[in-house]
Nucleic acid binder design. Structure first.
Length: 480
RNA sequence: GGCGGCGUAGCCAAGUGGCCAAGGCAGAGGUCUGCAAAACCUUUAUUCCCGGGUUCGAGUCCCGGCGCCGCCUCCA
């Protein structure tokens, strides 16, 4: 079959063939580091993390670059507001971002370059564009002349006339054409600046990604990703700059993720309807590992290109779904050592997961399809356990969940850790010993057929958020 | 206004022209249980926003509506 990826450039799914077989080079636009990241940033990071993991899962070597924009108007503004330097602002929020990613279980990229470390490469690129007649200098600013690049607009599906008609920005009079964009900006006093052939200044937004991607991945490279709001103008401009400078294609597959929404509206800074990753973890009633898994499950249960609507209910639903999986893992773990009728049926089921999982992921990274495969297997395994399954088979099945789940970053905890972290944080709770003592007392009462007392103890434990499940043999297990 | 996307059960959500339209959550009934919980079984869309068309056959392709969203300004 082979992996097929939806390419924004061609607006269709295409068979994915890396430039070098067995090796993929991908670049994803990271964040501008001027504030805490929100769920939308988390989705983008997660989606490309999963894409990267899946490629690696299939035996591909992945060189993965995710950048940080650490020079920008918003950073400068924030620095003024906080009374610190722009560098301090970006450093701080890069660190915060990395903390968030670690907590979410998003792996670090192979390279995480910062724009300011690539000023010489950017200057070289701009000089090349000037030499080739694609750019011009006005009072220390350098602009890219969009009209000179015939393919401008191809990625976002628009032509130059439409862009002019729809222009809502106030036009910089010094531009030859209102659609031209800045490659280099002369800096005002007090702003971060670097020496350049055109005087002290700082790079325009788009040029950094061209410089950093080509520096680390060459040109062309395989996959360039980002949120769909970057299609225009950011990625359109990247293509123009890069291809005008090198005269070779820039990127082969453009991949864009859809937005996180709140009540069907895009989550964004400007609308103010955003949740930071930080506050979701802090507000969550669960431990961080459980919240991370629930968040991942929630985000991956929708295809990456579709919008996904966030709510507390949605997160709760994801948590419930994961509870069922961890419930299965516990049952698998508790299965008796003896061989049973289920053992002979196990292997075909595991093979079916293998095939179904790959088929789903090969179809433009259909994580919802992959999750459905896990759900199917969950039901099958519960039935096998009812029929009788050996401990050895149970371990084998659990290992299957763990190895395939790793691609999505799910099912990696032990069921004990899962239950423990599911405990209502902050609330008063009981120690394991206290719970065991209560449980023993209850089971003693049950033996005496003193069900009133047994139910009373169950209610007491329930008040602490502890649920009891009785086993057929008269013992009980509990969950926080 | 231009461009793009979406509209599938109470809710979330797959679906690359052709077996009964994945899967999950919630609900209902049942098995099990002292009662529960968990697990399992059964059940929940004669139909995929509406109207045309292409086809032997369309949720899936085409045309026209209606509704929602996004981009066109910084934005994952």
């Amino acid at each position: 079959m082979g992996l097929r990826i939806y390419n924004t450039l061609t607006r269709q799914k295409e068979l994915f063939e890396p430039l070098t077989p067995g090796e993929v080079r991908m670049y994803v636009c990271g964040i501008t580091a001027y504030d805490l990241s929100h769920l939308g940033h988390a989705r983008s990071a997660l989606v490309f993390d999963v894409i990267r993991r899946y490629l690696e899962f299939t035996g591909t070597r992945v060189r993965f670059v995710r950048n940080f924009t650490d020079v920008d108007d918003k950073i400068i503004k924030r620095a003024e507001k906080d009374g610190v330097s722009p560098a301090e602002v970006s450093e701080r929020y890069i660190t915060e971002y990395q903390k968030d990613m670690e907590r979410l279980g998003v792996l670090p990229a192979s390279v995480e370059p910062k724009a300011t470390a690539y000023i010489p490469q950017m200057i070289a690129l701009i000089e090349r564009l000037l030499a080739r007649g694609f750019a011009y200098v006005v009072d220390g600013d350098v602009f890219f002349e969009v009209r000179r690049f015939a393919r401008y607009g191809r990625l976002s599906g628009r032509n130059l006339d439409e862009l002019l008609a729809g222009a809502r920005v106030e036009v910089d009079e010094r531009k030859r054409d209102p659609r031209d964009f800045a490659l280099w900006k002369s800096s005002k006093p007090g702003e971060p600046s670097w020496e350049s052939p055109w005087g002290p200044g700082r790079p325009g937004w788009h040029i950094e990604c061209s410089a950093m991607s080509m520096e680390h991945l060459g040109s062309p490279f395989d996959i360039h990703g980002g949120g769909e709001d970057l299609i225009f103008p950011h990625h359109e401009c990247e293509i123009a700059q890069s291809e005008a400078a090198t005269d070779t294609p820039f990127v082969r597959y453009w991949v864009h993720n859809g937005f996180v929404q709140i009540n069907k509206e895009k989550m964004s800074k400007s609308l103010g309807n955003f949740f930071t990753i930080r506050e979701i973890f802090e507000k969550s009633p669960y431990g961080a590992p459980v919240t991370a898994d629930a968040l991942r499950y929630f985000l991956l249960a929708t295809h990456y290109r579709s919008p996904v609507d966030f709510s507390d209910d949605a997160l709760w639903e994801a948590k419930r779904a994961l509870d069922r999986f961890y419930g299965l893992f516990q049952r698998l773990d508790e299965s008796s050592g003896a061989a049973g009728p289920g053992d002979g049926l196990l292997l075909p089921l595991l093979e079916r997961l293998d095939e179904g999982f790959r088929q789903a992921m090969d179809d433009d990274f259909s994580t919802p399809g992959a999750i459905a495969q896990f759900q199917l297997l969950r039901g099958e395994l519960n039935r096998l356990i009812d029929a009788g399954l050996s401990r050895r088979s149970g371990e084998r099945a659990r290992e299957h969940f763990r190895s395939f789940g790793r691609v999505l970053g799910l099912f990696q905890s032990s069921w004990r850790a899962w239950e423990y972290e599911s405990g209502t944080a902050g609330a008063e709770t009981l120690t394991d010993e206290e719970i065991e003592r209560k449980l023993a007392e209850r089971n003693e009462a049950r033996r005496r057929k003193d069900f009133a007392r047994a139910d009373e103890i169950r209610a007491e434990l329930a008040a602490f958020g502890i649920a009891i499940e009785d086993r057929p043999d008269g013992t009980s297990r509990w969950k926080r």
